[in-house]
């Protein structure tokens, strides 16, 4: 009886896992199949072809989009880590005028749904003349309230005597942050880095609003435009373009899955 229930449990889990993994495997294999074979359920193609990738690469600037996405997501992540931890350090450990107000404002901002500010932000970008610039994609994300609150929470737990010692040793406050706090905050920094990078990497609505020039598009945006514009034509080409976006993420996920899960689940709960 007990044996039977264990078998049922593993069978159920296996079916569930297949449901989550199989579509991606099928997607990967479909990109290597010729058009005639595209719809088949089999994972191993009869004839392996790279035509889908050649077509996709030739029809739209996916290489450029990959560079754009990498640049934008990396810049945002670095900014959120550096600026965010400076802000969080000040909010957690320094007394300055307006600190309570800043704390309250940060929490309030998190309560407002993004759709409320979407249009005013868009008109702001238009008025700044930032349409079709990297600035439009990067500047509104330089600070992240969720990241600041997470970092602040972590910084609050570091003993005061470390700050005191560092001050006695003659360090400036930024130096204390980057040489004492950062090495001690690796777990939370990696959490913030992952969810920030993933958020920036996968974001699609904002780029759709502020970028029209193909050469400036990020990957998910170009992918969407490509699929909707009929540029893809076939299933294989359409999925091949999606692979450019997915492969780097899946590779990173395979190596850092524990950090990914902790990070994305953690940020969702806080946010």
């Amino acid at each position: 009886m007990k044996q039977l229930r264990r078998i049922a449990l593993y069978a159920g889990l296996t079916i569930a896992a297949i449901t989550f993994i199989y579509p991606f495997l099928w997607m990967a294999s479909a990109t290597f199949k010729p058009a005639a074979e595209a719809g088949s359920l089999a994972l191993i193609p009869h004839d392996i072809t790279l035509d889908n990738y050649r077509t996709m690469w030739a029809r739209a600037p996916f290489g450029r989009a990959l560079v754009n996405s990498t640049f934008v997501a990396t810049t945002i992540t670095l900014a959120v880590l550096v600026f965010g931890s400076m802000t969080a350090y000040a909010m957690a450990r320094l007394n300055f005028r307006g600190r309570p107000a800043l704390n309250a404002a940060t929490i309030a901002v998190l309560m407002v749904p993004g759709q409320l500010t979407l249009i005013p932000l868009y008109t702001l970008i238009v008025q700044l003349g930032w349409i079709d610039t990297y600035a439009a994609l990067i500047v509104p994300y330089l600070f992240n309230a969720t990241a600041i609150l997470m970092l602040r929470q972590f910084f609050l737990q570091i003993p005061q005597s470390l700050i005191d010692s560092a001050r006695m040793d003659g360090m400036s406050e930024p130096r204390i942050l980057f040489t004492i706090f950062w090495p001690l905050s690796k777990p939370v920094l990696s959490i913030v880095a992952i969810f920030t990078f993933m958020g920036a990497w996968n974001e699609v609505l904002w780029p759709l609003l502020v970028v029209r020039e193909q050469n400036l598009m990020t990957l998910p945006q170009l992918l969407t435009v490509f699929a909707l514009g009929g540029g893809a034509g076939t299933v294989g080409v359409s999925l091949a373009s999606a692979m450019v976006l997915v492969v780097p993420v899946v590779i990173a996920y395979m190596f850092l899955q524990r950090n990914f899960i902790e990070s994305m689940a953690g940020s969702g709960i806080k946010g």
């Binding site: 003993p159 005597s161 005191d164 010692s165 560092a166 001050r167 006695m168 003659g170 004492i180 001690l184």
Partner: peptide, 20 residues
């Protein structure tokens, strides 16, 4: 004066040693 210009050194209750 800030601490670094005072020429004093301090031993803390929980030592304040840099863990890393």
């Amino acid at each position: 004066l800030p601490p670094r210009e005072r020429d004093v050194a301090m031993v803390f209750q929980d030592y304040g040693l840099y863990p890393h």
